[in-house]
Design a protein around this nucleic acid. Structure first.
Length: 785
DNA sequence: GATTGTCTTTTTTTT
DNA sequence: AAAGACAATC
């Protein structure tokens, strides 16, 4: 991208006065349409930008931010910009730097949580914490709550800690901290542990304070408390943030809303919120669509600008999405339009089971590739993450490189969490949760009995577990064996702490992992995952080099929850640091939720079945509100695509090892029929699947609107023939010597077992497996026998 | 205190 | 199917 802002060192004075002049002189404004332009230039006073999908929201936001800085309305450090994801934040930083032609250092740009954490660290003592407080994740929280339940003799099977954890989180989302306990008591309907939940909540907060820890919700909750009880401090922040920008406003919860209102409660109220009520998909996390619907009332004199021209999707896609979302009530209402082509209709395909669905989508993707479509431009968006598995298996076997975005996270892995617990113990000896986690990992003969004693002392004297351990090694309360072992561990930690000055943090981490016996533990572990775990530990050691020190690292992992590269088919180890670049172009697989804000040429939407999408739980728990949110999710899915959307549903699916049959999603019928083309199931029959594919499809799968079996696809007829032809022809093609394997080689594949190479073409192999028959496989997954 | 085997359960979305 | 919880056993 060129550098539109390079123009001007002299411009800034004039540009404030005349917009037309500014427009001419500031080329970065030139490619905006008139609504976008006014959204950028209306810098003063409260502004709500209602930006439909694909209307250039991000662009407006980044340009606006650059504009404010470029015209010297504020310095970077006087601008607060909040996003929901770290990815969005990162992109914004990049694009602003691009527009300005230099990095905008000092910007307060980040997620609600990371900014709140920053503010809280500066003022932690006002809520009884030290500035080096730990940020707990859900796992820590649940463990803690479990302990509290236990101490009250509450059966944690009947009332699981996880449930309580979400309840507490929910309260915090609603802006209720432990100071509002009366209101919580009213809210709590006593359904958890006979109404003990609020009082456990109080205990929990007390524990957090002792632990010098804050959970996710506290980051905001504490900030709000601080702001409310320290007007001077609040006003210093208010003065500092001359301009506030908020992305994805429709997803703010009450706590975030209160936080923003406090910060924006100045005379000028220079707050600009960008959002789309139709894309509110985080209600389950406490998001209130009401916030966006109420904006004009909340901020007096607010202006509203609508962005309705869509630059992304084809006419068919846009109409389909609009038709669908039109079934929702209580919208602000927008009419998206485009000058683009009508494009391809949305195709709908029914399949027999999840495997067939994956197979057909795999075929479609191969066709797209042949047509020259880049894998990077294709995405599969699923409702629930278990759906990714079928695709992974399929793509592994046919050799399509993919990445699962937002899959299991690096830092959530057991070995990583253990390693992190060691670090936490190192820098924060009083971190009880870390202490508990690693005291007997690897095994040191310090089991439950010893731990109980340590607990007793710590409770009796109101000191941390570490402190209580320090006392216990002086006494005879522990068995001799346990005592020695504990003493050794404590000494080890002291020694490691003494090394902090003389060693780099990554060297030290390695030393700790080795000397503690943690590495050995996995070396001697015979389970198939242990090599991967060791690999991950190595990854962690090298990732930590990227950070200044342990504390920066800890902050990073507790706040930067997304691992941006995702889990890939190329590489099982996951990268924490931001600058890893993965060479190959890859297909993306992710949940609909995490797809928000992204766009692709081709989008596959599998699993459109009643019960899965809309999800049964959403319907059960929240009735029609739940349904509407699911519908918005569908809307988000559709509008991710530029060129083509292909929807799939399956008659049967295996869930928890049980076959479940379902009917097509109601959403399928809610898409206007003009924009849809249905693919009769029996035409989709694929060679792998000949025998079972068309069992009683016809009667069963015709949707109420009669989509199935009524229309044919205009584009390439379903490719089973093409695929077959290609399959049969391939052996005739010239074979390249570049291949690591030759025909006749005996090989092993980690999923399919033993087989014989039939053909080799570069890294693509065709193998006849002893157990599963012929498969196309990429050589990366193959080893010689 | 550790190990082994049996029984149970499984939340959709995530900062 | 897989992971976790729990009990029985070494």
């Amino acid at each position: 991208m060129s550098d539109p802002l390079k123009v001007s060192k002299t411009v800034s004075t004039e540009s404030k006065t005349v917009s037309m002049l500014a427009k001419r002189q500031q080329p970065y404004l030139q490619n905006l349409n008139s609504e976008q332009l006014s959204a950028v230039e209306e810098t003063e006073g409260p502004l709500l930008v209602l930006a439909g999908a694909g209307t250039g929201k991000t662009r407006v936001l980044t340009t606006r931010l650059s504009h404010i800085i470029h015209t010297n309305r504020a310095r970077p450090s006087e601008v607060l910009a909040v996003t929901f994801t770290n990815k969005a934040a990162r992109q914004m930083v990049e694009r602003v730097a691009e527009l300005l032609g230099r990095p905008a250092d000092g910007l307060w740009l980040g997620t609600f949580h990371s900014i709140a954490a920053r503010i809280l660290r500066q003022n932690a003592e006002l809520v009884g914490l030290r500035s080096d407080f730990t940020i707990l994740d859900t796992d820590d929280q649940t463990r803690l709550l479990k302990q509290l339940l236990k101490s009250r003799n509450i059966d944690d099977k009947r009332w699981p800690a996880r449930t309580l954890c979400t309840m507490i989180q929910r309260w915090k989302d609603q802006g209720l901290s432990s100071n509002n306990i009366e209101r919580i008591e009213i809210l709590d309907k006593g359904e958890f542990a006979n109404g003990e939940a609020p009082s456990i909540f109080l205990d929990y907060q007390k524990r957090l304070e002792i632990l010098n820890a804050a959970d996710f919700g506290d980051l905001l909750a504490h900030c709000i408390t601080i702001f409310k009880s320290n007007p001077d401090l609040l006003s210093s922040y208010q003065k500092r943030f001359k301009y506030i920008l908020v992305d994805e406003y429709q997803d703010t919860n009450v706590a975030q809303y209160l936080w923003l209102r406090l910060l924006a409660a100045t005379e000028d109220q220079n707050i600009c919120c960008v959002g789309d009520d139709d894309q509110s998909i985080y209600g389950w996390r406490g998001a209130e669509v009401g916030n966006i619907l109420r904006f004009e009332k909340d901020f007096s004199g607010a202006k509203v600008i609508r962005l309705e021209r869509n630059y992304r999707s084809s006419g068919n896609i846009l109409e389909a999405a609009s038709g669908l979302i039109g079934k929702n009530s209580g919208r602000l209402g927008k009419t998206l339009w485009t000058k683009g082509d009508q494009g391809l209709p949305i195709s709908i395909t029914g399949t027999w089971d999840g495997e067939e669905e994956a197979r057909l989508i795999g075929n479609e993707i191969e066709i797209l590739q042949e047509e020259g479509q880049c894998l990077e431009e294709i995405a599969i968006l699923v409702r629930a993450s278990f759906q990714t598995r079928a695709f992974e298996e399929r793509f592994l076997s046919i050799g399509i490189p993919y990445r699962v975005i937002g899959g299991p996270r690096f830092y959530e892995r057991q070995e990583i969490r253990d390693a992190i617990a060691y670090i936490r113990m190192l820098v924060q000896p009083d971190d009880d949760l870390a202490f508990e986690r690693i005291i007997n990992v690897p095994k040191r003969g310090l089991g439950d009995a010893s731990l109980q004693i340590i607990h007793q002392i710590s409770r009796a004297k109101n000191i941390s577990l570490n402190a209580s351990a320090q006392l216990l090694v002086q006494t005879d309360d522990l068995s001799k064996k346990a005592r020695n072992s504990l003493a050794k561990l404590l000494e080890d930690f002291n020694r490691w702490r003494s090394l902090i000055k003389s060693h780099t943090h990554w060297e030290l981490l390695k030393i700790i992992l080795d000397e503690s016996g943690y590495t050995d533990m996995w070396l001697h572990d015979k389970s198939p995952q242990s090599p991967g775990r060791l690999e991950n530990l190595k990854e962690l050691v090298s990732a930590i080099e990227e950070f200044e020190g342990f504390s920066t690292f800890l902050e990073h992992i507790s706040l930067v929850m997304d691992n941006e590269e995702g889990r890939t088919s190329q590489n099982n180890a996951i990268i924490v640091a931001n600058d890893a670049n993965i060479p190959t172009k890859m297909l993306s697989i992710m949940t609909l939720n995490s797809a928000k804000g992204l766009e692709f040429n081709n989008v596959f939407l599998p699993g459109w079945e009643e019960g899965l999408f809309p999800h049964q739980l959403a319907l059960d728990e929240n009735g029609s509100t739940g349904l509407e949110e699911e519908r918005r999710l569908a809307y988000v899915g559709l509008t991710r695509a530029r060129k083509q959307v292909q929807i799939f549903f399956s008659a049967n699916r295996r869930i928890y090892n049980q076959w479940v049959s379902s009917i097509p999603s109601r959403f399928i019928d809610e898409i206007p029929s003009d924009n849809v083309i249905a693919k009769p199931v029996n035409q989709t029959t694929h060679l792998d699947n000949v025998n079972k594919a068309h069992l009683n499809v016809d009667e069963k799968w015709i949707s109420p609107a009669g989509y199935l079996g009524t229309k044919l696809r205009p584009r390439k007829e379903l490719n089973s023939n093409d695929v077959r032809a290609e399959w049969e022809e391939e052996p005739a093609k010239t074979r390249h010597s570049g291949s690591k394997f030759n025909s006749g080689d005996r090989v092993i594949h980690r999923k399919f077992g033993l087989g014989v190479v039939k053909h080799a073409d570069g890294d693509k192999l065709e193998i006849l497996f002893d157990k599963v028959g012929r498969k196309k496989v990429i050589d990366r997954f193959i080893e010689s026998e």
